[in-house]
């Protein structure tokens, strides 16, 4: 089970993403971070912390649950539905720059669902995408604006992001035959 990122490198990747956000957006005015549940949420909070350390400004963060927007939810109705968790966006997203945060970018279907969900909340000025890992194999025309690590994978492999807040450790591992 090869580890492809440890805690130290993860923290540096997130700090680098924070710098890139500042560079591209010329300051933090009107900026907000929205993490996709589950692991996008702690990642969004960490990036907000990194931004505060660099710039001193607080960036609001929110949590988005995309379950009710999934495109595969009703296609195989043969059993119990997946758990729905609370979406918490405690600020207006109208005219804001929204940084959408997810752990692994793969087919792009989660992001499609997240975009639909976000737009039900208002009309952001811009939505940019942050992914800790981009493992390829897109099925929709979606691209990340900020990537922690590009990780070429085969379809048979799975990529596990583990975070201190949820899993008790910070690492990314890749499982299965290449």
């Amino acid at each position: 089970m090869p580890q492809v990122m440890d805690a130290d490198r993860m923290s540096r990747a997130l700090t680098r993403i924070a710098h890139e956000i500042l560079e591209r957006n010329r300051g933090l005015d009107e900026l907000a971070l929205v993490g996709i549940r589950t692991r996008g949420v702690p990642l969004a909070r960490r990036i907000a912390r990194a931004l505060k350390e660099i710039n001193g400004d607080d960036v609001p963060t929110g949590a988005l649950d995309i379950t009710l927007y999934r495109d595969d939810l009703m296609r195989h109705p043969v059993g119990p539905q997946p758990l729905v968790r609370r979406t918490e966006i405690p600020f207006s997203i109208d005219d804001r720059k929204i940084m959408l945060v997810d752990d692994v970018l793969y087919t792009g279907r989660t992001i499609r669902a997240a975009l639909d969900a976000l737009i039900d909340f208002g009309r952001p000025r811009v939505i940019q995408l942050i992914a800790l890992v981009d493992r390829g194999h897109r099925e929709l025309p979606i691209k990340a604006d900020y990537v922690g690590k590009n990780l070429p994978t085969s379809l048979k492999q799975s990529v596990q992001v583990r975070l201190q807040e949820i899993d008790g450790t910070d690492e990314i591992v890749i499982e299965g035959e290449p």
Binding site: R39, I66, R70, D71, D72, P82, D103, V104, Y106, T107, G108, R109, T110, A113, H137, E139, L155, K156, S158, V159, Q160, V161, R162
Partner: peptide, 15 residues
């Protein structure tokens, strides 16, 4: 698990 089911590929190659 970080691979959300919604994000699994539709490809025929997958198990």
């Amino acid at each position: 698990m970080s691979t959300r089911a919604a994000d699994r590929p539709e490809s025929a190659e997958r198990a």
